[in-house]
Design a protein around this nucleic acid. Structure first.
Length: 422
RNA sequence: GGAGGAGUGCCCGAGUGGCUAAAGGGGACGGACUGUAAAUCCGUUGGCUAUGCCUACGUUGGUUCGAAUCCAACCUCCUCCA
């Protein structure tokens, strides 16, 4: 047995070697056999994403990075969008049911998710990654057929033994049959993909382990076929908290949910202790470079953080946005506001109509409501062009604009915006 | 099927008629200190067109001048009995 996280002595495949050194492997159903398979030729691997929101967030980055590496090493990724499973809602490790999504909402969400996926894996060409929607087959099932064909392959005893539902059961929070069947659907997905596309590996977050194992077992029972499951580690910060939340909510990958600069800032603000790990997980930088950056100490680590931020932004948003974000960061934190691209744009007509400071703070995404903005202002956390403003009724006038009709707005030490009025 | 108990804000948890937008803790955010880090200390933590108004204590109704708190029905969970 190969231990995840430890340097293995005799690895056959480059893929497992790379994933291990990147820290992308948490658990595998049979790492040794998978290693062999990956060394023998191209393998098709998939990761699925439900359409619970209009954008993926940083937590989804790890399975995507795993697919990215596999593709780079000659294997073929499939990304499954959960148009079908989103109608059910995965109960794994959740203590309450997800609100049910409308078809229309699911379709809109899928569009947003697709955009990020396309940047992380290469969809072009004949051998490019594949994007499929599990509604394609899940929507076709008739209830009785489904029960007979697949329900017979699962036992409730086994299904209840998974940790993903155990906590729910133990907490005595109702788990509906609808939700309980989610793991069956995901298992069927895997079987379906193995049949349609010869897909033999599923990758997911560690919370997906139960669902993945069910798929692997269904492949064995149903088709006598060996399938593999691989989970990536749960993303936590050095403080032990679940990573990916900020004041404004999740750290989204879609630019309409979080600006590329906001995204860059998130990584720039990484805690010291997380830098080496994040460089390995979320960038394409060679390990030698990661190691070099990881030796930096104290304030020097800030350079490594900038590299981290720029690299991840490059992968998620592209080189132009990454470069712009880096420049914006330098400009906003070291002066020189004229040099960089603005982070926000607003209609200059709004100034004439009367624009309050609070509205501006909300418009910049630094507060979710006027009330929150008011509190920030009253606490002395808001600066206009570098000067603390404590009057919540302060209006923005054309006299506040710097060169090029710009305005520098800052909330706290790390959230800054360069707003252009045109 | 019967008897009893429980369901509180992002999370945990106190509160059993007005002083409750609701103790305390966690988390998050802001301030001080720093390196846009960590630790520590202090503060804030429902919304609004804001000396007022609206929304909120499982759901829906009711009693009352006034309800998270009392009553009824319903939903979910727990315990005991059948």
């Amino acid at each position: 047995m190969i231990e995840a996280g430890k340097p293995a002595t005799k690895l056959k495949s480059e893929a497992v070697q790379v994933l291990l050194e990147r820290g992308l492997i948490n658990q595998c159903t049979d790492l040794e056999a998978l290693d062999t398979k990956l060394s023998e030729g191209p393998v098709t691997a998939y990761a699925g994403f439900d359409a619970t929101a209009g954008s993926l967030h940083v937590g989804h980055l790890m399975p995507l990075m795993t697919l990215r590496w596999l593709q780079r090493l000659g294997h073929r990724p499939i990304v499954v969008l959960g148009g079908g499973t989103s109608q059910v809602g995965d109960p794994s490790f959740r203590n309450e049911a997800r609100p049910l999504l409308e078809q229309q909402q699911i379709a809109a969400n899928i569009a947003g998710i697709r955009r990020s996926v396309e940047r992380l894996v290469d969809m072009s060409g004949q051998d490019g990654a594949l994007l499929v929607d599990n509604a394609e087959w899940l929507n076709e099932f008739k209830f009785l057929e489904f029960l007979r064909d697949y329900g017979s392959q699962f036992t409730v005893n086994r299904m209840m033994s998974f940790d993903s539902v155990k906590s729910r059961l133990d907490a005595h929070v109702p788990l509906t049959v609808l939700e309980f069947c989610y793991m069956m659907l995901q298992a069927v997905d895997f079987l379906e993909l193995s049949r349609r596309h010869d897909c033999t590996l599923q990758i997911g977050g560690s919370d997906q382990w139960g669902n993945i194992v069910n798929g692997v077992e269904l492949g064995r029972k149903g088709d006598g076929r060996q399938l593999f499951g691989l989970t990536v580690p749960l993303l936590t910060t050095a403080n032990g908290s679940k990573m990916g939340k900020t004041a404004a909510g999740a750290v989204w990958l879609h630019p309409e949910h979080l600006s590329p600069f906001g995204f860059w800032q998130f990584w720039r603000n990484t805690a010291d202790a997380d830098v080496p790990r994040f460089l390995r997980l979320f960038t394409d930088l060679p390990i030698s470079e990661v190691d070099r950056l990881s030796t930096l100490q104290g304030a020097e680590l800030n350079e490594a953080k900038k590299i981290l931020a720029t690299q991840v932004t490059n992968i998620v948003h592209g080189p132009e946005d990454a470069r712009a974000a880096l420049e914006q960061g330098d400009a906003l934190f070291a002066g020189g506001q004229e040099l960089a691209e603005p982070t926000h744009r607003m209609d200059i007509a709004q100034l004439a109509e009367g624009l309050g400071l609070l509205e501006l703070v909300v418009a910049a995404g630094f507060a979710g409501s006027n009330g929150e903005a008011r509190r920030l202002v009253e606490a002395g956390g808001v600066r206009l062009n570098g000067i603390v403003v404590e009057d919540p009724r302060r209006r923005i006038a054309s006299g506040d604009l710097l060169a090029k009709e710009r305005l520098a707005l800052a909330v706290g030490k790390r959230r800054k915006a360069l707003i252009a009025f045109d």
